[in-house]
Computed example of a mutant assay.
Amino acid sequence: MIEIQSRQNAALKHLARLGRERKYRRSTGEMLCEGEKMLGEALRSGAKLKTVLVRDGWDSPLVKEAEEQGASLYSAPDALFKLASEVETPQNVIFSCSQPQWTADALDGAGQVLLLDGLQDPGNLGTILRTAEAFALGAVVLCEGCADPFSPKVVRSTMGAVFRLPCVTLPLAEAAERLHRNGLPLYATALHEDSVPLSSVSLSKAAVIIGSEGKGVTEQALRLSDKRVIIPMKGRAESLNAGVAAAIVIYEMTK
């Protein structure tokens, strides 16, 4: 294990850039993760671990396992260790690993799919991915304008689901064409005069579009959908948080 003694250390700067820069994450094909639980999830999923940084004095059998799988190990005093993290009080281990790679082929065997149309909030995205994996949804598609699924906040919010759930980045039109070819009807969640209650359509084999937090689904999504659906509400609220709406849709799809 190499002891980091300077903020100019290349490994430390690499981890910090992974946390800050989407373009850098894309160019390296890596993502930044934090915590012993996430390290265990990464190891169990078979993710390729790259760089593991631990706080001075901390140890875990998982660190040894990461080293055996080829990861480079580093330790750092608290002041330097914190430079690699995006949170105020980081956990005891920060690491980088290869981003999970899912292609459009993952949709071919998926009977129930959620499409996210311009969902920009990282916390909502992470929560949706975690919920989708918890209910064994077939796949989630990230369409144009979505947050980076490999940003630290999204990764933290997934609680490990990022390693297991098929999550495909695909233009909406291409995703719709593929899903229709696979025999899945496409429903858009939208408040419209011809919208029908979510419970009135069959979701046993279907795809549902959730729109962005502020604008909802796009006009393109409405054109591509076979039907528009709503989640009936008895109160006076006009809409639901995107993460909450997605959770209700996922539950209805998989119950």
Rank of each mutant, 00 (worst) to 15 (best):
S75Q: 09
L83D: 09
K227E: 13
E88D: 15
A188L: 07
H192Y: 10
P61I: 14
E3S: 11
C97L: 06
A106D: 10
V63R: 01
Y251Q: 10
L49E: 02
S200H: 05
G243M: 10
R228I: 12
L129D: 05
Y24R: 01
E21G: 03
E238N: 11
Q8I: 08
D226P: 04
H180I: 09
N124W: 00
S225D: 08
R178A: 09
H14C: 04
S96W: 03
P166M: 07
L107V: 10
G216H: 00
Q99C: 10
W58M: 13
G111I: 11
L114C: 08
H180G: 11
A176F: 04
Q112N: 07
E68T: 08
R25Y: 08
F95Y: 07
A237Q: 13
P197D: 03
A42H: 02
A247P: 03
E36N: 06
E238Q: 12
A84D: 09
K255L: 14
L43M: 03
A139M: 09
L179P: 00
S96I: 05
E174T: 12
T218S: 15
Y24E: 09
K64E: 15
G160C: 07
K23H: 14
L115D: 03
K13F: 05
A221V: 11
N182L: 10
A176Q: 07
F150I: 05
L49V: 02
C146H: 00
G160N: 05
A106H: 12
L184A: 02
A42F: 02
Q69N: 14
D105L: 12
A173F: 10
G160R: 05
N9L: 08
A79F: 02
A188G: 05
G183N: 01
K255I: 14
S204N: 14
G70K: 06
A245F: 07
